[in-house]
C-alpha cells in the first residue's frame, strides 16, 4: 500500500512536471493555471493541444507497457520476457511502416496509427493460431519469435526496396518511438486499447500468482491455463498494439520496470502488475521529460532515451544478480 502511494505520488509529480516543460517559456504555475482555468490565449492552447496529450500519452503508454511486461514475465515465469516477445510490436511496426511507405500519412492523419493497429490485430491472431489453443508457454514463445522475425524481415524488405529516401527516413525515425506532436485524437485512439488490455491483464492477477507453482499445480488450484494464456496474449496485444500505434516502438520499459519493482512487492506477480503500471508511467514520463530537457532543439527520440536509461539499469541488475549467485 505504501509502495502504491509512493509510486502514485511520483507519477503525479512527473505528470505535472511534464506539463510545465516545453519550448514556450512560461512559468510552471502559469502553465498549470492556463490548463485548468482555460481561456482562449495561446498558452491554454499550447497546454491543451500539445503538452496535455503528450503527458497523458506518456503515462498511458508507459503504464500499459509496464503492466504488460509484468504480466508476460509472470505468465512465462521468466524475468527476461518483455511485451515485444509475442510479436505484436513487430507486426504493429510493419503496419505503420507500410502506411508510411504508401504515403497514407499524407492523405489521412490517422492512417499510420490505424495501419499499426491493423498490423497488431493480424499479428496477434497469427500468434494465437500458431501457438494453438492448448499448450504450454513454450509454443507461445516460439510463435512470438516466428512472427517477430517475419515482421522484422518484411519491415527490412520495405526499407530495402523503398524508392523514396524520404519515406525511408520517416520509417527509421518512426521506429525509434516518440511522443512529439501528438494530439488528443492520438490519446483517444490509444486509450480504449490500453484500457481494455489493462482490464484483461488485471483479471489474470490470481492466475499469475498460482503459476508461481508451475503449470500443473496452478491447474489443480482451479486455474484454466487456456483461458489465462488467452487473457495474457490478448491483453498484452491490445496494450502493445495501442501503444505502438501512437508512440512507435518503445523498448525496455516493459522489461526493466517489473525487474526494478519486483523486490518491493515481495516478488508476487499479482502485486507486480499494479506496481509496474505505475512504475512504467513514471519511467516514460521521465524519459519524455529528458527528451525535451537534454536536447530541446533537436528531435531526440523517446525510444532512444528509454534504451539509454534502461540499458544501464539493466546492467546494474545483472551485476546485482551476479553478486547474489552462490
Amino acid at each position: 500500500m505504501r509502495l502504491f502511494l509512493i509510486l502514485f505520488a511520483l507519477v503525479a509529480a512527473l505528470f505535472a512536471l511534464s506539463l510545465t516543460i516545453g519550448p514556450a517559456r512560461t512559468g510552471p504555475l502559469d502553465s498549470l493555471a492556463a490548463l485548468f482555468v482555460g481561456g482562449d490565449g495561446p498558452l491554454p492552447m499550447v497546454m491543451r493541444e500539445i503538452r496535455l496529450p503528450r503527458a497523458l500519452l506518456a503515462a498511458l503508454v508507459g503504464g500499459g507497457l509496464g503492466m504488460a511486461g509484468a504480466a508476460l514475465q509472470g505468465y512465462l515465469r521468466n524475468p527476461l520476457a518483455e511485451p515485444g516477445l509475442i510479436g505484436v510490436s513487430g507486426s504493429a511496426a510493419l503496419g505503420a511502416v507500410l502506411a508510411l511507405q504508401a504515403g497514407l500519412t499524407a492523405t489521412a492523419s490517422l492512417g499510420l496509427p490505424l495501419a499499426a493497429l491493423l498490423g497488431a490485430v493480424i499479428g496477434v491472431f497469427l500468434v494465437i493460431g500458431l501457438a494453438g489453443a492448448r499448450g504450454g508457454s513454450l509454443t507461445l514463445i516460439l510463435a512470438g519469435i516466428a512472427i517477430s522475425a517475419l515482421a522484422s524481415a518484411l519491415t527490412s524488405l520495405v526499407l530495402n526496396l523503398s524508392p523514396n529516401p524520404f519515406a525511408a527516413n520517416d520509417i527509421v525515425f518512426w521506429m525509434m518511438g516518440s511522443l512529439a506532436d501528438r494530439s488528443m485524437t492520438h490519446f483517444w485512439l490509444a486509450l480504449p486499447f490500453v484500457a481494455v488490455g489493462g482490464i484483461l491483464l488485471a483479471s489474470t492477477a490470481r492466475g499469475l500468482d498460482a503459476l508461481t507453482l508451475g503449470e500443473d499445480a496452478a491447474e489443480t488450484l482451479g486455474l484454466s491455463l487456456t483461458r489465462l494464456r488467452l487473457l495474457v496474449v490478448l491483453g498484452t496485444a491490445a496494450i502493445v498494439g495501442g501503444a505502438t500505434a501512437v508512440a512507435g516502438a518503445i523498448g525496455f520499459v516493459g522489461l526493466v520496470v517489473p525487474h526494478i519493482l519486483r523486490p518491493f512487492v515481495g516478488a508476487q506477480p499479482s502485486r507486480l502488475l499494479w506496481a509496474s503500471a505505475l512504475g512504467g508511467a513514471a519511467l516514460l514520463l521521465i524519459a519524455d521529460i529528458s527528451v525535451r530537457v537534454i536536447l530541446p532543439d533537436r528531435d531526440l527520440k523517446l525510444g532512444v532515451v528509454t534504451a539509454l536509461i534502461g540499458a544501464p539499469l539493466f546492467l546494474h541488475l545483472i551485476f546485482k544478480t551476479r553478486r547474489e549467485l552462490p
Partner: peptide, 8 residues
C-alpha cells in the same frame, strides 16, 4: 518438479 518461479 518443485517449481517456485519467484522469490516470494
Amino acid at each position: 518438479a518443485r517449481e517456485i518461479a519467484w522469490p516470494i
